Every structure is written in structure tokens, then in C-alpha cells.
Amino acid sequence: MGDRAVIEQVRSAAGRTGGALGAATAATAGAAAATGADAADRDRRLAPATVTALTAAGFPRHFVPARWGGTQGGFAELLTATATVAEGCASAAWCAMLWAAHGRFAAFLPPDGQGELWGDSPDIRVAAAVLPPAGQAVPDRDGWLLHGRWSFASGVEHAEWILLAAPDAAAPDRGARVFALPRDAVRIEDTWDSTGLRGTGSHAVVLPETRVPAHRSFAFADLLRGDPAAPARCHAVPAHLPGGLLFAAPALGAASRALAAWTERAAPGLLDGSAAAREALARSGAEIDAVALLLRAAAERADTGPVDAAAVARNRRDAAVAVDLLTGAVERLLRTSGTGVLAAPGELQRCWRDIHVIASHGALRLEPAAADHARSLAHRA
């Protein structure tokens, strides 16, 4: 049975024919992800059953334009669904979120290019390596000659298409362009063996010189600024408005699960044990709850608020601070757990490792986010 048939079978068994993300579908995908979480961490890749569950839940089609059968959904829905899956496995949530986000990227392709991706189904998993742009693109008749090596293509092993960004060698400013290629066009280098998010398979990819037709390319700047004329809000907003909060979503789910796992472990001695443990539970729990509120407010701004530099700066600030708070909350829990938690692999240790790797992502660095926020306030003064 082919991948598409399996996905439809899963949906049919769940009593639904569409692919819209929701609480029930995310919970189902999260349960599948949790079942394979230890193996994903050990084997450094997601299990096929997890990939099928994430696809059936509606992640890849979430931002696909409606004309191709996609959901062209909202950022708040994706935030919540990603965090739910991350309670089962942060690696699965990371890939699911990016398959959704990369569908939003691909919506900037010309119509013929979109048709190549989604003409048969909106449930196409798209990997990407767009930051920083790498390789080289040279104009060639009505297309491009593209080649190079790109790092950190999360979820690429299970993708069907890949987006690659490269500078235009013929442009005076060498402005970058994004190119869509079938995933089989690239060679995957097994380079991802990280401390956390081990199951994301965020390997490097290599592309020999390949001709890419013009309808499978668009200017990277179009993605960054969004298309204000787009019929769907998700395609109209600039990339940095929702970008950081979506990267923060897997950390929120992992921290929530870490808190639950720690509480289950500590519960027998909480009342008669140390005050430090009770304080850690109270403070870390409150911080994780506060981050959930912070990120949901940011997602609502991305979905419905004004689109201006101040909103972008505020969302970047809130995403960076949110992950910093989550990292501190889980650190506090582990410091009160004793060495046994870190002595052998386990769920709490995995959450801790995953959150640290998420916090290292460039989109969540506090320094540039803080500078951007300060500039936005200075311009309003």
C-alpha cells in the first residue's frame, strides 16, 4: 500500500476525510510520536509510522493554498498542535512543524511550480535548507543551473521535495533565490548526530549541477516580506512575524512533558520532602504556563494583528525569551532530581537535551531579537 493510501486509511479510521489540524488529530499524532520517541532518539530518525501519523494529522498541508486542497491555516493552530506532538516526541514535532512551514514557503512558487508539488495531493512533505543561502545559482535560458552543499535539512529523509536557497551569481547584489527540487535529486550526507532533537535527521544535502526551471524558483526576499495581496493571511505576513514562535513550539511541548515526568517521579516525596523540590515544582510550572500564554498571544498577533515592524520585533523578542524561560524551568527541575536522572537515558533527560538544542537555534537568539525590539521602540519614540 502506498504512502497516500496509508494516510487516507488512517484518516478514515479516525472518522475524518480532511486533513485540518485540531486537538484530536494532534493528540493522535502525539501518541504515535511518543511510542517511537525512544527509538527515534537512539536511531536518529523517525519511524515510518510516526511520519504517517504526522502527515495524516494534517501538518504538511496546513499552509498549502486551498486551490490545491490545502488548509491555508493559522499560526495559533500550528503552535498548539506542534506543542501537543512535542509532549510525545520533540523530534517528531520539529519535523512536523517544519513540513508545515515549508509548505508555506513553497506557496511563493509560481502557479506551475505549485502544481508540480501539489497537483496530486496537498500532503507533500517538503524539507528545506534556506538559511544561510549556500551553493550557487546561475541563470540558464528560462531556468537556473544550481549546485552546492547545504546543511541542516531537517526531516529530509522523509521528504518528497526540498527547497534550497542559493545566491544568484548574475545579480549585482547576489540576492538569494529559493529553488524547489524533488528530494531524490539531492544526496543526503549523514551529518546530524546531535545532543538533542536526534530524530530530526537534520543532515546536509549535496546537489550536483542541476537545471531548475524558472517556475520552480522565487526570490528569497518575497518570502521574507510576505505577499500582502495573498488571499490567505498565512501567506501575507513577513516570515519573521511567525518564525520564532513556531521554532519555540516544540520546546513548549517538551518542557510540559518534562514537568509531568518530573512530577510523577517526585510525587511520593513532595509533601514530606525538601522545600526546594516544592519550590522548583511551583516556579517551573508557573514559568511553563506563562510561556504558553506568551506564545499564544504571539500566534494571535501573527494570525490577526497589525503587520508592522513593531509586531515582528515583539514576536521575535517573545519567542527568544520564551525558550530562555523554558530552558531555565527544565534546568531547575533537573537540579532537584539527583544524578540518577542524567546517569541513564530516559524521558526527562531526552526532554532536557531536546530543549537545549532548540534553544541554540539562530531564530531564537535573544541578542538580535533584543536589538530589533529596541530599534522598533526607538523608531516609535
Rank of each mutant, 00 (worst) to 15 (best):
M1Q: 10
V6Y: 04
I7F: 03
E8H: 13
A13F: 11
A14Q: 15
R16K: 01
A20G: 08
G22H: 07
A26G: 07
A26V: 01
A26S: 09
A29C: 11
A31E: 12
A32M: 05
G36N: 13
A39C: 09
A40I: 00
D41C: 07
D43N: 13
R45F: 00
A47H: 09
L54Y: 02
A56I: 01
R61A: 13
P65L: 11
W68N: 10
G69M: 10
T71E: 14
F75A: 09
A76F: 09
L78T: 09
T80C: 02
G88V: 05
A92D: 12
A93D: 05
A93R: 01
W99L: 05
F108G: 04
G113E: 09
Q114G: 15
D123A: 08
R125F: 08
A128S: 14
A129F: 10
L131T: 11
A134W: 06
Q136A: 15
V138R: 14
D140N: 09
D140E: 15
G143N: 11
G148E: 09
R149H: 08
F152V: 14
A153K: 02
A159Y: 01
E160S: 07
E160N: 03
W161T: 04
L164I: 06
L164N: 00
A166F: 04
P167L: 12
A169T: 14
R174P: 00
F179R: 06
R183W: 06
R187Y: 01
D190S: 12
S194H: 10
T195P: 05
G199V: 07
G199K: 04
A204F: 02
L207C: 02
V212C: 11
F218W: 01
F220Y: 01
L224S: 04
G226T: 05
R233T: 02
R233F: 00
R233V: 08
C234S: 10
V237M: 04
F247P: 07
A249K: 03
G253F: 02
A254C: 00
A266H: 07
A266P: 11
P268L: 12
P268I: 08
S274A: 15
A275H: 13
A275C: 07
A280F: 02
L281K: 09
A282D: 15
R283L: 14
S284Q: 05
A286R: 13
D289F: 00
D289T: 02
A292F: 07
A292Y: 06
L293R: 14
L293V: 08
R296E: 13
E300H: 14
R301W: 14
R301T: 15
A310W: 00
A311G: 12
V312I: 12
R314K: 14
R317Y: 12
D318S: 11
V321W: 10
A322L: 07
V323T: 12
D324A: 15
L326R: 12
T327V: 00
L333I: 03
A344V: 13
P345M: 00
R350E: 15
I355Y: 08
H356M: 07
V357P: 04
A359P: 04
A363Y: 05
R365V: 01
E367H: 11
E367W: 06
E367D: 13
A369C: 11
